[in-house]
Computed example of a mutant assay.
Amino acid sequence: MLKKLLFVALAFSLTNCLVLNPVGATLDREKGSEAASRITDAAIQTDLVRSVIISGSLNISILSLVAADVAKIESDKYYVKSDVDQCINDIQGFKGVALGSLVANIISCQDLKTDGYLTGDPFPSF
């Protein structure tokens, strides 16, 4: 009985990744379309804050509207949520305000890895 229970638990934990990762149901995963939207919103907000500080008027860079494309986010893939959160924090933080959202995006968001089915890309982070 104990062997069967352990086997079922092991089988469930292995299939859990196969089923939950592709549908984005794991805790630390985020769909690319949502990540792209959050990165674009962060870039727009940072450009607005930066333009008010520098010139006193509201301006948005055209490059902030394509921030997700600059970060090379694929909308059909899944990304590690903590990596996306770090990218957004860098864009909205001191880097973004001091250097601009485009430079902060290039510095912080270029290395976002897609999440694979079982192992991640290239391996899962623990």
Rank of each mutant, 00 (worst) to 15 (best):
M1R: 09
L2M: 15
F7E: 13
A9N: 07
F12L: 15
S13H: 11
N16Q: 08
L18Y: 11
L20T: 04
L20N: 08
N21K: 10
G24P: 06
G24F: 04
G24R: 00
A25R: 04
A25F: 06
T26S: 14
D28P: 08
R29T: 12
R29W: 09
R29D: 07
K31Q: 12
S33C: 14
S33L: 09
S33A: 13
S37W: 06
S37M: 01
Q45M: 09
D47G: 09
R50S: 10
R50K: 14
S51C: 01
I53Q: 09
S57C: 08
S61D: 14
S61L: 12
S64I: 00
V66P: 00
A67G: 07
A68N: 02
S75K: 07
S75L: 06
K77P: 04
K81I: 12
Q86S: 08
C87A: 01
N89K: 14
I91V: 12
Q92W: 04
F94I: 15
K95Y: 10
V97N: 03
L102N: 03
L102V: 15
V103L: 08
A104W: 00
Q110Y: 05
L112F: 01
K113D: 09
K113C: 10
L118C: 11
L118P: 06
L118F: 09
T119D: 08
P124S: 07
S125D: 14
F126K: 14
